[in-house]
Amino acid sequence: MTTRVPARRSNPSEQSARGKSFLEKAAYVVTPGTVVFGLLYYFGSTYRSAYYDYFGVRVSELELAPQDYVMGSTTAIFLPLLIAVVLGLLGVASFVLVDNQLSKRGLDRLRRQVSWALVAAGIGLLLLAFPVFLRPRWWQQAVSLFLASGWPRELLPPLIVAFGAILVMFGRHLRRDASRYRERVRAITDGLLIALVAMTLFFDMALYASGAGKAEAGQETNQHYMNMTGVVIHSREPISTQAYDACKDKGTGGGSYRFTCAGFRVLAKSKTRYFLLLERGKDVATLVLKDDDSIRVVVWKAS
C-alpha cells in the first residue's frame, strides 16, 4: 500500500518572489540611484554653467566628466535641500499636533472649519503664485519695496506655490471622510499636489544652483582670484594683444620661449586648452590658450 504525500502549496508571496527576474529585482535598487545621480548631475551642471558663464566661458568647452558635475552639485543644493528637509519635518510635526488637538470630542465643527480654511488659503496662494511666474509689472513694483533683487525675488513664487499645495493637502487630510469614492478622489488629488510640490521645488533648486554659481564667481572676483592657481606663461610669440602689457620680450637671447607673461590665474583646464584670467584694473580678460609646444606653463604661488 502506497501513501501519497500531498504536495505542499507554495505561498503566493514565494511564487511571486521566485517569478521575479534578476532585472526586476535590480530595478528596485538601480532606479532610485539613477534618479538621484541624474538630479545631482543636472544641478551640478546648472551650477557650473552659471559659474563659467560669469567669465564668458561655455561649460561645454571645458570637456568636464559627469563626476565633475556631480561633485559640484553639493555646493549647489546642500543648503536648499537642508532647508526643505527641516521645513518638511516642521510641517509634518505641525500637522500631527493640529490633528491631535482637533481629534478631541466636541471639536468636529471646528475641525471642518479649519479644514476648509486651510484648503481656501492654499487655493488662494496657488491662484496668486501662478500668474507671478509671468512676472507682471504690478508684482515687480510690489516686491521691489520689500525684497532685494536676485535670489529672494526669483525663489519666492515657487515657494508660494509649494506652500499653497501643502496647505491644500493638510486641509483635505483633516477631513475624515469614510466614503470610498472620496478617498479615491483625495488620493488622486494628493498625487497631483505632491507632483506640483516636487516640480516647484525642482524649479526653485535649479534657480538656487544658478544663483550660487554666479555668486561664487562674483566672490572670486571680489577677492581678486586669490584662490585660483597663478601661472607664468613662457611663449614663443605674444599670446594676445589683450595681454601684451603682461608679457616681457627677452629678445633673441631668451631662447626658444622669447616672451614671458605673468599675472595669470587658471580658471579651468581642459584636455587641450588653458582658460586663463588676467586682471587689469577693474576689468578682467579671459584668455584661451591651446596647450601645445608653443607655450610652457609654470605654476607659482603668491606669498
Score class of each variant (00 low, 15 high):
100 N>W: 06
124 G>F: 10
106 G>A: 15
122 G>L: 03
109 R>W: 05
131 P>L: 10
92 V>T: 11
117 A>I: 06
107 L>F: 06
118 L>T: 02
113 Q>T: 14
114 V>Y: 04
95 F>H: 10
107 L>T: 04
112 R>D: 08
117 A>P: 03
102 L>T: 08
115 S>R: 05
97 L>M: 15
97 L>E: 01
124 G>Y: 13
115 S>K: 11
124 G>A: 14
109 R>M: 07
102 L>D: 02
130 F>Y: 13
95 F>A: 09
103 S>H: 05
97 L>I: 08
94 S>N: 08
94 S>P: 05
110 L>Y: 00
92 V>W: 15
113 Q>A: 13
120 A>V: 13
128 L>R: 07
117 A>R: 07
107 L>D: 02
107 L>I: 01
110 L>P: 01
115 S>V: 12
118 L>E: 00
100 N>R: 03
107 L>V: 01
106 G>K: 13
111 R>W: 08
100 N>Y: 07
92 V>I: 14
120 A>D: 09
118 L>H: 04
97 L>W: 09
123 I>Y: 05
113 Q>W: 14
118 L>S: 03
119 V>C: 08
105 R>G: 03
119 V>T: 14
107 L>H: 08
107 L>C: 00
119 V>H: 03
128 L>D: 09
131 P>E: 15
100 N>E: 06
95 F>S: 03
132 V>E: 06
131 P>R: 12
107 L>Y: 00
125 L>I: 04
113 Q>K: 10
117 A>N: 02
132 V>N: 09
131 P>S: 02
97 L>N: 03
118 L>K: 02
100 N>K: 05
124 G>K: 12
110 L>A: 15
94 S>Q: 06
116 W>V: 11
123 I>D: 05
96 V>D: 04
116 W>D: 10
101 Q>C: 01
115 S>I: 10
110 L>D: 02
132 V>K: 07
129 A>D: 06
125 L>N: 10
103 S>V: 00
95 F>R: 15
116 W>C: 04
118 L>Y: 00
128 L>I: 15
115 S>L: 06
107 L>R: 14
104 K>M: 01
119 V>N: 07
127 L>M: 04
124 G>S: 05
124 G>H: 11
132 V>H: 13
119 V>M: 07
99 D>Y: 10
97 L>K: 10
108 D>F: 06
106 G>D: 02
93 A>Q: 07
98 V>K: 02
132 V>C: 11
106 G>L: 03
103 S>W: 01
123 I>T: 11
121 A>W: 07
107 L>P: 00
131 P>N: 15
116 W>R: 12
111 R>Q: 02
116 W>L: 13
107 L>Q: 11
101 Q>S: 09
108 D>T: 12
126 L>M: 15
94 S>M: 13
129 A>S: 11
118 L>D: 01
116 W>K: 09
117 A>S: 12
131 P>A: 06
123 I>A: 09
110 L>E: 13
126 L>V: 14
98 V>D: 04
119 V>L: 05
111 R>T: 15
117 A>F: 05
98 V>G: 00
127 L>V: 13
98 V>S: 02
104 K>A: 13
101 Q>D: 03
105 R>M: 05
95 F>V: 07
